[in-house]
Amino acid sequence: MSNSTLRRRPVITHENPKSPISEAYRTLRTNIQFSSIDEDLKVLMVTSAEPGEGKSTTLTNLAVAYAQSDKKVLIVDADLRKPTMHHTFRVSNRYGMTSLLTNQAAIHEVLQETFVPNLSIITSGAIPPNPSEILASKKMVSILDELKEQFDIILIDAPPAIAVTDAQIVATRADGVILVVDAERNKRDLALKAKQNLENVRARILGVVLNNVDRKNKDAYYYYYYGESK
């Protein structure tokens, strides 16, 4: 069994689209769409306060939910420290975002199809020694501008917002940010600090996804807060 298979997380919205959890992700997609009716939200960033809160799983299933609504969707793995998307979708990570940002490849060379119709991916590429610096480059802006011409929705997986500045940098390039919080393990002060870090760069936080909420309805995988989270 390969390392990719070992580390692959299931994509529930693709494998079991009629499940209550899949329906929850479709509801999240709808909530995002209605959160800004007058503006076109094309680039969304997903982050968390700490590692292990489910940001990448949330992003993956949200991306599939968009793809299932006949949108042309792109996942960009901008977690240049601990990337996971190439494992999830079982694709090569030889070339990716770092290849683009360092002018070693063109967009058409790093775009990869996934096993999900309408869903493409740009993996992280090789892990660089200076993630924050290359994410802050003007090249990042031009890449996203070009990708927005090719895709209806772009979902960016960013590192957790507490430990490093990467998420703050990427947030300034996005139309909106979704903050994922694990209700069972996250401390309130860390969630508030992550929110503050994002607001410091005037990021537009669309809402907070509470993961693993202990509710009477065990089918509810998350709870979504609209707009400003207190």
Rank of each mutant, 00 (worst) to 15 (best):
K139S: 01
Y66Q: 02
L59Q: 06
R202W: 04
T84C: 05
T102L: 12
L198W: 07
D166A: 05
R90L: 08
S92I: 06
T102V: 06
D157I: 06
S142I: 02
P128A: 12
I122L: 12
M140V: 10
Y25E: 01
V213H: 04
K138T: 11
A220M: 14
H87V: 00
K42Y: 07
D145I: 04
I32M: 09
E184K: 13
D77V: 00
L206N: 01
V177W: 05
V181M: 14
P83M: 00
P129I: 14
K139E: 08
E199M: 00
V73P: 03
S69V: 01
Q33Y: 12
Y223N: 11
G227Q: 02
R94C: 06
T60S: 13
L206K: 14
I134K: 01
E146R: 11
S2E: 06
F34Q: 00
R185E: 13
L101P: 09
D182M: 14
P17S: 07
T165Y: 03
G96H: 06
S22E: 03
P20Y: 07
H87D: 08
V141P: 01
R185L: 13
S92N: 15
A171C: 09
I37Q: 12
V43S: 03
S35V: 04
S137W: 02
Y225H: 10
I32Q: 14
S2F: 05
K82Y: 04
T5S: 02
T47Y: 04
N211W: 11
D189T: 14
V91A: 04
P128R: 07
V141G: 02
N61I: 06
K187R: 15
Q104D: 05
K138I: 09
D152Y: 08
E15G: 00
G227P: 05
S137I: 00
G96E: 06
M140T: 13
S48T: 07
V180Q: 11
T84A: 10
I127V: 15
L206P: 01
A220L: 15
D152M: 09
S36K: 05
I178N: 03
N197D: 02
S69M: 10
D214N: 12
K195R: 07
L28M: 04
S137D: 11
L74G: 15
K216A: 14
E113N: 11
A105M: 01
S22Y: 03
S120F: 11
N61R: 15
G96W: 15
E39K: 13
R185W: 00
V76E: 02
D214R: 12
S2I: 01
Q168M: 05
L119Y: 07
L101V: 00
R94P: 10
V201P: 10
Q150M: 15
P83V: 02
T84Q: 14
T30Q: 09
E23G: 12
I205K: 05
I75V: 13
I205F: 10
L135V: 15
K82I: 08
Q196A: 10
E113L: 11
V11E: 12
I156L: 07
K230E: 15
P10L: 12
Y222D: 02
R8N: 00
A161Y: 03
P10N: 09
R29E: 08
N186P: 00
K139F: 11
